[in-house]
């Protein structure tokens, strides 16, 4: 109950009405997708002209089956040639121009309520072990998985330098303490 109509390049091109309908000279340089004069133009290896933003959107639509909209030839970003007209102020490769899609932003889930530190249930798992008595607690390591603490600050921010400073202070305090233990 079906018919499979392959779209051959010839009739399709005619049918999109690009070149034949408009009378102005721009008609031959219309994008095959938006039917407007191609902007940030690229041409595929099979010779079909597109705006890069239009083609990019089409390639994103079917990432697993990237075909030329006009002739269904295989197509990809690397196999398109950017076109630069004379005197264009912006000679940047249009394929680089389109900003890459913004990346998804994910933040760590916040621990709210529940029993802090006693949580297999509420999503956090904390464990700490130490060796020896109080003074040697310095050697204690703490493993915290997935707790609600924020990560380290980005290098270059004031918070980062502050944290660096604090960690140095504590290091010196620890060294002094051990020194005192040895001589006492």
């Amino acid at each position: 109950m079906s018919s499979d109509t392959p779209t051959s390049p010839g009739p399709t091109e005619g049918a999109t009405g690009g070149s034949e309908v408009s009378t102005d000279g721009n008609a031959f340089f219309e994008c095959n997708i938006c039917l407007d004069t191609a902007r940030d133009a690229v041409v595929s290896m099979c010779g079909h002209l597109f705006c890069w933003p239009c083609l990019h959107q089409w390639l994103e639509t079917r990432p697993n089956r990237q075909t030329c909209p006009v002739c269904k030839a295989g197509i990809s970003k690397d196999k398109c040639i950017p076109i630069y007209g004379r005197g264009a102020s912006d000679q940047q490769d249009p394929r680089e121009k389109l900003p890459p899609r913004p990346q998804g932003q994910r933040s760590e889930p916040e621990n709210n309520g529940g029993f802090p530190g006693f949580g297999f249930g509420d999503g956090g798992f904390q464990m700490s072990f130490g060796i020896g008595a109080f003074p040697f607690g310095i050697f204690a390591s703490t493993f915290n998985f997935n707790d609600g603490r924020p990560g380290p600050a980005q290098p270059g921010t004031p918070q980062h330098s502050e944290e660096q400073f604090l960690s140095k202070v504590f290091l010196w305090v620890a060294i002094l303490f051990m020194f005192w233990l040895l001589i006492a």
Partner: peptide
């Protein structure tokens, strides 16, 4: 209508006119 260009074989270079002709 069961016609492949209306779903799987659609391409943005097709148009109302080319669908009508198909």
């Amino acid at each position: 209508i069961c016609l492949s260009i209306l779903t799987d074989d659609w391409s943005p270079a097709l148009s109302v006119q080319s669908v009508c002709l198909s």
